[in-house]
Design a binder for these strands. Structure first.
Lengths: 232, 232
DNA sequence: CGAGATTTTGAGAGCCTTCAAAGGCGGTGG
DNA sequence: CCACCGCCTTTGAAGGCTCTCAAAATCTCG
């Protein structure tokens, strides 16, 4: 979509010099801990979440390879969210000073990062509307579609069928539902012929109906990067 | 908090050269319309919202003077949200090309804009947790506290008492509740001695209890801008 | 193979919605 | 200046969606 210059590529590679493995289930950053490094997620799947005082958890966002995570360190002294690994992951940690150097020398990269911020913002506001205004069934359908689509970006081999990699409890924490009710909604989607399930694998058997149930809008269709400054 | 250089100030002022009045109730940008300009909100209060297929509305965010709005134009060809004026407003429209010039020439401004993005992201994720995991009473309490705090940033004269400027329907659309239930929750907060109301004016009569009911966390307390590059 | 985690199912309760209608308030035109 | 109108607020009653609690079944992993 955008072809980077050699200098730009090199600058990004410098951010990814160091590598750290994060095993499945481990926590990369804990809410309210002193904020430190930011990371590029190199491989695997992570999630960020917050804990409320009553002990309930809200999953805010799932992260996939290529995502820049823990970016709230740019603004806050303490981490605003917990980030943990849903699968074995590899991350590339970097310092804010290195980040500052990149955006100072490469305005177009700065612009591209802002574009990513806006894409994530749109994803968050979409989720806000889903949580605020749609039924349990729609929320579960929406998370299934969203996860499938995001996985497919990285692995175009994924079609109607994919491995979810989440427990029903986690789906509930992402959708604002209880695990029990998530189970009933999955069963209902299955009974109505929209999906089928076997051993953690989900298959979309009627994608159109599922999208309709979920109120789905494809945000990735309408990107427009014509305004970017020249690369250096 | 950060002292801008003369050049930086000048660059920002160039973005604010043009002015446009937006009367109360008017729409600045409609969802799915071709995305165009971005804006700095100079005065007044606006909101952004989305409409779902069933006709229900979710208010995503309230905007106050100084906010940069319609920024999703950076990434998308069509507007992702509707922006409308809750009071008479003045906005300063500017083009993406002008924006690109600013971040190309002023890396520290680019960095500051990213900081603002992260602050807004934290606000959105806080709201996500509120919608997903808290009761109606907590949601209403949370929106009251949030609006008071944001108004107080611009008008330090505001203390425990302020003019809300929203209908109960709008509070409902922001919190994911019906107007009817918002009314009951406001009454309950009043009956429990946390707030009092008279003619659109809300007074916090027990702020501690209200914050507790709302699960309030003060995000503005922990900002950290030590990493910014030098100004030009 | 055993233990713990996860999924599944049932029953009952509660929070919030829906539907309906009355009351209050500001604004506008005569 | 007043009457009327529309929007907003308030209140009641009933219903439904989702939660809580509980327990059994299934799965995963060491």
């Amino acid at each position: 979509m955008v072809v980077l210059t050699a200098n730009e590529r090199q600058a990004l590679e410098r951010l990814e010099e160091r590598k750290r493995a994060v095993p499945r289930g481990a926590t990369l950053q804990r809410e309210n801990d002193r904020a430190g490094e930011m990371y590029i997620l190199r491989s695997g799947m992570m999630m960020s979440s917050v804990l409320l005082v009553d002990g309930s958890r809200q999953i805010l966002r799932f992260h996939f390879a290529g995502d820049m995570i823990a970016v709230s360190s740019l603004a806050y002294r303490e981490a605003t969210e917990t980030i943990s690994a849903l699968t074995d992951c590899v991350v590339c940690p970097f310092e804010r000073s290195g980040f500052a150097a990149v955006i100072a020398e490469h305005p177009r990269l700065a612009a591209l990062i802002m574009v990513c911020n806006q894409i994530e913002r749109a994803a968050l506001t979409d989720r806000l509307a889903v949580l605020g205004r749609t039924s349990a069934k729609a929320r579960v359908a929406a998370i299934l579609i969203d996860l499938r689509n995001r996985m497919r970006v990285l692995d175009p081999g994924i079609g109607r069928s994919f491995v979810l990699g989440l427990t029903q409890e986690e789906i509930g924490d992402a959708t604002g539902l209880t695990a029990v009710h998530v189970n009933r909604m999955l069963r209902q989607l299955e009974d109505e012929g929209m999906i089928s399930r076997e051993a953690g694998r989900v298959t979309f058997t009627d994608e159109r109906a599922l999208e309709q149930a979920a109120n789905f809008v494809d945000r990735y269709a309408g990107l427009d990067l014509g305004w970017l400054p020249a690369g250096r």
